[in-house]
Design a protein around this nucleic acid. Structure first.
Lengths: 221, 221
DNA sequence: CTATTTATGTATCAATCGATACATAAAGGA
DNA sequence: TCCTTTATGTATCGATTGATACATAAATAG
């Protein structure tokens, strides 16, 4: 179904240049362009013609390099994760407490989602793919799975906080994770509609008030 | 560009039956089907063939009755508002305080967004149209405007609460409205991914803790 | 140099897209 | 009953969709 990352030889070795005619385009550059298009317009609304034009190649080259439109979208989704995920999850992963982690996640989201770079689309590509993948079951499951990762990370971090005594064991960890996920998902929608970084930071701050009240319920932490 | 609701004669009079061959399908039924399709799959992913099949009519009848795919979507959006809006905004509009209004909005959203009826799509049609309307400028502005209505209503209600003394005048009303909007938008994403009513109600409850903490800041209400 | 391998550009595939032309069917007005 | 009006069904429009066939160009291996 998918190549699942071929043997993956030692990347330090330039891999002994292949034989035939060399590719006239940079695969990563092309993938970056495709990612931008899918991110901005969604899967259905992005045509092969759009893609080939943005990449500056012909359709045979696209199919030779990526296989199909669906496969290209899947690869774009991976590329998106590799390129942009750390902007939002970097602080979360290294924070010493669950509260600091969630605070970092929401504040970083507020910074990134409105499009921190000039040519960076607004909102999260994964979140905004919630609709429009109907009729493409595989892609639907793919993006739904990508969104599930958010909940899983939040839940794992909160449960760790419970085990470490940061948060009372009487807390509904799942509910708390769902709350944070809701905030972050909603921020993508607002960002796509033009909300500013300051506005989203304000939302994040209010959300943290909810977090504090919630984690105080029935325990003083 | 658009018919903008023709003269609209007195609806109480059956309007003296028209002359020619009567329509073989119920226009409202057909519009309901179209709304369901657009709601579920989005604008781009829904084809004319999908629509005519679901409505049980031929394409000429569709174009005679609705004009174009874009016009049909616009009408579906209006139909959606008329049919489902009160489920979410009914309690909000009659609540005596801003807090009660927001609480009602979020709790009703938690009830409706997971699909309260069996054949009711999950999530809000307007919210989930955030992406996929690129290249269709008119529709993009239409749904973006529809989403702006949410913020406007929230802001108006909160400002009224300030003027009535329910909420301190030192509160950032816009920020508070943005917070509630974020929660409700995020709930649509979670609902589309399968979140249950109980989960969303829990999210709403936590959001209200944020509301309470936020409205208490610098004033005791 | 020749042979092999790989990528490109052109040109096009069948299928589907949104949208109509046209003749026919079914109603009311005369 | 005939005429006008409106809606339907069939059949199809040009454009675009995702995806390829094919000949050619450009590289390496021998």
């Amino acid at each position: 179904m998918q190549k699942s990352e071929p043997p993956l030889e030692n990347p330090e070795v330039p891999a002994a240049r292949s034989r035939g005619r060399p590719r006239a385009f940079n695969r990563d550059m092309a993938l970056a362009q495709a990612t931008r298009l899918f991110w901005t317009k969604g899967y259905e609304a992005t045509s092969i013609a759009d893609l080939t034009q943005a990449m500056g190649i012909g359709s045979p080259s696209l199919y030779a390099a990526f296989g199909s439109k669906e496969a290209l979208y899947a690869e774009a989704l991976r590329y998106y994760g590799g390129q942009y995920e750390h902007l939002v999850w970097g602080g979360f992963l290294v924070a010493p407490t669950a509260r600091a982690a969630v605070h970092a996640l929401l504040m970083d989201s507020a910074k990134v989602l409105p499009g921190c770079t000039a040519d960076m689309p607004r909102g999260c590509m994964v979140t905004l793919s919630a609709v429009g993948c109907e009729g493409h079951a595989e892609l639907g499951e793919l993006v739904q799975g990508a969104r599930a990762v958010t909940l899983h990370r939040l839940l794992a971090r909160i449960e760790r906080a419970v085990s470490e005594g940061e948060i009372s064991a009487s807390i509904d960890t799942h509910g708390l994770a769902r709350f944070v996920q809701t905030i972050q998902s909603g921020m993508s929608i607002l960002a796509r509609d033009g909300a500013s970084r300051a506005e989203l930071e304000d939302v994040a701050a209010t959300a943290m008030l909810g977090w504090d009240a919630r984690t105080r319920t029935m325990a003083d932490r």
